[in-house]
Design a protein around this nucleic acid. Structure first.
Length: 420
RNA sequence: GUGGGUGUAGCUCAAGUGGUUAGAGUGUCGGGUUGUGGCCCCGAAGGUUGAGGGUUCAAGUCCCUCCACUCACCCCA
């Protein structure tokens, strides 16, 4: 019979990997907490309308990547493709803005997008999101970015590149769209097919094209940051000076755009060379109009998302740092010793020690081999002779030395040796 | 959605232009040696060669279809 496999693009995270995930999540909680962020846990399923309104009807995510279905009550539901929309929904639904003007939230969990799987891209993937609502101070932008960089360093990622840009606001962006559209329309023959299409749908996207011909044209194109309104320009400058004050290295990439419509002003991306084409491990930006678009009060916000699969793929986390080695292996020979081992093993576990044993009545050789493989610190050898003499041999795996342990108070002696 | 690459044991890979019973290393299990594990030696289990069809006396090998994985486009974290 053929076994059932996981759905395409959906991955199991196996022991050996899970420890790294817990390590990264722990680091995030520790650092985000220090910056005053509180955790929020959100549902995976939302009304489809939420994503259409926030991400944008004509974005790729909404147009062709969402897992959308009609449930038994004839309601259109969608498995969230990102977290910001849900956070905004909860923010409004529970009027979180009423209790404090500044709301800082983070969340960790799976997102779903039906794309073709590829290196660093899955249909279910996990994101770490942080959002700060209620301030449009540019120093807040820098602070959020600082927190992100600090976190990445905390998990060992030090060679990542931070790029920032300003996407303008409803005051200056439409005018620039006209400028760029006019500019490109005159040279549209040199553009690739995709970019010809983008010309009408979203001209700003042409800046992001990797095709040589398009890049050449774009190289001489006017840039949005040269057309920013005064407010946006000042904001962007202050974000940059704040980042410099913090000593956060960055580069301005005037061609960076984002795939979600709600971004305004500051946008940023963290990339690494080790991931192939999917080189962004984190991205985010400001979204000053989003809450209002969803029917709420004026609440400027900024946030980012970290792709955890990608981060864990590049973060240098050695196994030794995160996987707990067993303290002790009890090798028992014969039924009586096994009975004894069963009791001792579990008593030690209840006292907090990580203890392994073998139940198969197998040879000492086999049991020692397993002890080695599990990299147990100590091995306790317990045979009939030892039972009669009321002791057992405790072998230190590091230096091969061994010492007898009295059986009458083996539990205490062992806990003492194991440092528990 | 569009291309390219790859599918043989749990894992990494072999099997000249089709040709006996599809092999090896590693891992697993058992045994020998060892002062009681590591090193070494012996043995065993483990395969519908991704699936289905076709060509042929004969298919892991050639052809077709499908599937999966993978990389890239696209998009994004």
């Amino acid at each position: 019979m053929k076994i059932i496999t996981a759905v395409r693009g959906f991955k199991d995270i196996l022991p050996g990997e899970t420890e790294k995930w817990r390590f990264v999540e722990g680091k995030a909680r520790e650092i985000f907490t220090a910056f005053g962020f509180r955790e929020i846990v959100l549902p995976i399923l939302e009304k489809t309308e939420l994503f259409k309104r926030s991400i944008g009807e004509t974005t790729d995510i909404v147009e062709k990547e969402m897992y959308t279905f009609t449930d038994r009550g004839d309601e259109s539901l969608t498995m969230r493709p990102e977290a910001t929309a849900s956070i905004m929904r909860a923010y409004l639904e529970h009027t979180l803005y009423a209790s404090d003007t500044l709301v800082k939230l983070y969340t960790i969990g799976p997102m779903f997008r039906r794309e073709r799987p590829q290196k660093g891209r899955f249909r279910q993937f996990n994101q770490l999101n942080a959002e700060l609502l209620g301030s449009k101070d540019p120093r807040v932008d820098a602070e959020v970015i600082l927190m992100l960089i600090h976190f990445l360093r905390g998990v060992g990622v030090t060679d990542a590149q931070l790029e920032i840009n300003s996407l303008g606001c409803p005051a200056c962006r439409p005018a620039f769209r006209e400028v760029i559209h006019t500019f490109l329309a005159g040279k549209n023959k040199g553009l690739c097919e995709d970019c010809q299409r983008r010309l009408s749908s979203n001209p700003l996207r042409v800046f992001d094209c990797k095709i040589e011909g398009c890049r050449e044209i774009v190289a001489s194109a006017p840039l949005l940051i040269d057309f920013l309104c005064e407010e946006c320009r000042d904001h962007f400058n202050e974000v940059q000076s704040s980042l410099r004050n913090f000593g956060v290295p960055f580069a301005v990439n005037a061609r960076m755009v984002r795939g979600l419509d709600y971004y305004t002003k500051t946008a940023f991306e963290v990339t690494t060379g080790a991931l192939g084409a999917q080189n962004a491990i984190a991205g985010g930006g400001r979204y000053d109009g989003l809450v209002q678009d969803l029917g709420g009060p004026e609440s400027p916000g900024i946030g980012f998302a970290v792709g955890l699969e990608r981060l864990i793929a590049v973060a240098p986390i050695p196994d030794e740092d995160v996987i707990r080695r067993p303290d002790l292996f009890i090798a028992a020979l014969g039924p009586e010793a096994q009975d004894y081992a069963f009791v001792l093993c579990n008593r030690l576990r209840m006292a907090g020690a990580l203890v392994e044993t073998d139940y198969g009545a197998r040879s000492l050789k086999s049991q020692m081999k397993r002890s080695d493989k599990l990299r147990c610190r100590y091995t306790l050898i317990l045979g009939e002779r030892e039972l009669q003499e009321k002791n057992a041999l405790l072998r230190d795996m590091k230096d091969s030395s061994q010492q007898p342990v009295g059986l009458d108070d083996a539990e205490n002696i062992l806990l003492n040796i194991l440092g528990r």
